[in-house]
Design a protein around this nucleic acid. Structure first.
Lengths: 329, 329
DNA sequence: CTGTTAGCGCATTCAA
DNA sequence: TTGAATGCGCTAACAG
């Protein structure tokens, strides 16, 4: 592990000053072509590569390095959002870095915090805990609300979409509503606890709510939950699945059970994944406006950048959801 | 937009030396608790945040920053690989950065090249072109072969899996083989050109090859291609779809056409996406060993890191594919 | 426990 | 077109 080859070594090798090497490497025009060639050859010979740290240190250009903490790459919900963010960031010319965490995030965040200017993600932790591991970086919480200075957020209004979905389902003749909820809850200590989503749904439905069953947040879990629901409440003619992944499983289960969708039962998912097109019939869904989400996140980043990423009071945005009416309901 | 708050400002504000500020910020233990408090308060008051550039510059620890160029986040094929890589990198404690490119990659690569030590991706360009935009960084080509120094690669052996699939299909009684190929080809100027995958399939099948039709590399495209194939060659009883995404569409199309899978037609995809579980029947697939892929990539990174990311002669690895036998064939 | 002294490797002034 | 000086902001090594 020999010493690093520096600009000085190249300068000596080529018999020029280090500034000339710098000019050659950065391809500026105020340099003799022959000199450049000679320098470049010397650099090649020595295996010289400029230190990216020294370079970014000295140029100290304004960066907009966004660190994205992705909960899971197995779940298209997150990758769809990541893709949108990446695309939007690239369009603005900002590097976007990602890390995926499936367990405790502290280690990943510490790693990222040395590389970026701001951290974005679907964080579970409380504001204070987040701030503690963020090493002074501002945070943008996705689908949650930040209260403390330095914790900003972009919320997603699923509720209005759920309400609209119920209204639309009623219009089409649905009378008995059931839901398969997520069995997972951050706050409960293992026991199932109805999600906010299920509360909204129950409130919107009012009369005619047949039942609520929990299921794992997977395709298989959704299928299982749907079977449970239909076994306990066979009169159900409209089902809201906690998310599209689970709804995919529900549609598949309906096939197996000989239940016609949407003839016998109307199925609605949440998220609006592109994947909803993969099943027959294509999934109707309370869709998240991902582009709007991404745009809002980057707008906040822009504001933070203008303030040199100082600890500003919380900036909060809300992105409405929209009903994506396909064939399953 | 004022001048940056530096460690010196904080030192002055707190009435200590800059080294003490450094100690307080980095939370080392050789510092008096009261002093640290005072420094931290001063830092907070001034809105001080250490320059990550200066910090990484001066510590100059060995980094293993891997830059991943992802072709598309809409395609689970790439995100599954990205997830695997991310997970494997995190396990080794390396930051992994990603960028998604859906058009020309030069701009993205230039951006990334300032942030990472090595570039990894499914590159379309020729070695020489890659090297030109990589600004001296070594590259790892996924599912391709590097020939020039500095261009390493991890190839995936789909061929053996295809051959094995054909053998297994024959064993189960299949006699007439068709394939829906990808209509997309880098090298053709727009015209359809059979893929290598289709050549292997045709060679493995020999007698009994009914037809080859192109389709777009999407769920819908796969469904369309499958319909085309069955319309032209209704005697087909086994179909290889170019990839799983297209196979998802084929299975869905079969439903619509009243074709029983695998009773009437056996359908095999390629890639082994987790998504294959989403359809009924679950997809049989020539699966890519993603973990093997990720491990090999990181092994190469490790070798490169040991050589300070110099331009080494090509390192090439090959990851075998394995048949994932589910229910569609 | 705290302060002092030295760079890290580069690009950006300036002169020549 | 090239070279000499200067400093970016920080931490490591040593001193006190």
């Amino acid at each position: 592990m020999g010493k690093r080859v520096t600009i000085l070594d190249v300068a000596a090798e080529a018999g020029v000053s280090r500034q000339t090497v710098s000019r050659a490497m950065n391809d500026t025009d105020d340099i003799n072509a022959a000199t450049r060639r000679r320098v470049l050859d010397a650099a090649e010979r020595l295996g010289y590569r400029p230190s990216r740290f020294a370079r970014s240190f000295v140029t100290r250009d304004k960066t907009h390095a966004v660190g994205l903490v992705v909960a899971s790459f197995r779940n298209p919900y997150y990758t769809d959002i990541a893709g949108e963010l990446l695309e939007a960031a690239a369009a603005r010319g900002w590097p976007l870095m990602m890390t995926a965490v499936e367990g405790p995030t502290a280690a990943s965040m510490a790693m990222l915090s040395n590389q970026v200017d701001v951290l974005v993600g679907h964080f579970d932790q409380a504001d204070a805990d987040l701030l503690a591991v963020a090493r002074g970086l501002p945070l943008i919480r996705l689908e949650g609300r930040g209260r403390l200075p330095g914790v900003h957020s972009v919320e997603v209004d699923i509720r209005s979409g759920v309400v609209e979905a119920v209204r639309a389902l009623r219009e089409r003749g649905a009378r008995r509503f059931g839901m398969v909820d997520s069995a997972y809850s951050v706050h409960s200590g293992g026991a199932y606890e109805p999600s906010a989503r299920s509360d909204w749904f129950a409130a919107a439905v009012g009369e005619g709510f047949t039942g609520l069953v929990p299921g794992e947040e997977t395709i298989t879990g959704g299928g299982q939950g749907f079977r449970d629901l239909m076994a306990r409440h066979p009169e159900t003619d409209a089902v809201l699945m906690f998310n599209d992944l689970m709804a995919l499983g529900a549609v598949q289960s309906a096939h197996v059970l000989g239940i016609d969708v949407p003839g016998d039962v109307r199925i609605v998912g949440v998220d609006g994944l592109a994947l909803g097109e993969a099943v027959d019939p294509p999934l109707t869904s309370v869709a998240l406006d991902r582009q709007g989400l991404a745009a809002n996140v980057l707008d906040i980043v822009e504001i933070l950048a203008a303030a040199d990423f100082a600890r500003l009071d919380p900036i909060s945005r809300v992105v409405p959801s929209k009903l994506l009416w396909r064939k399953s309901a």
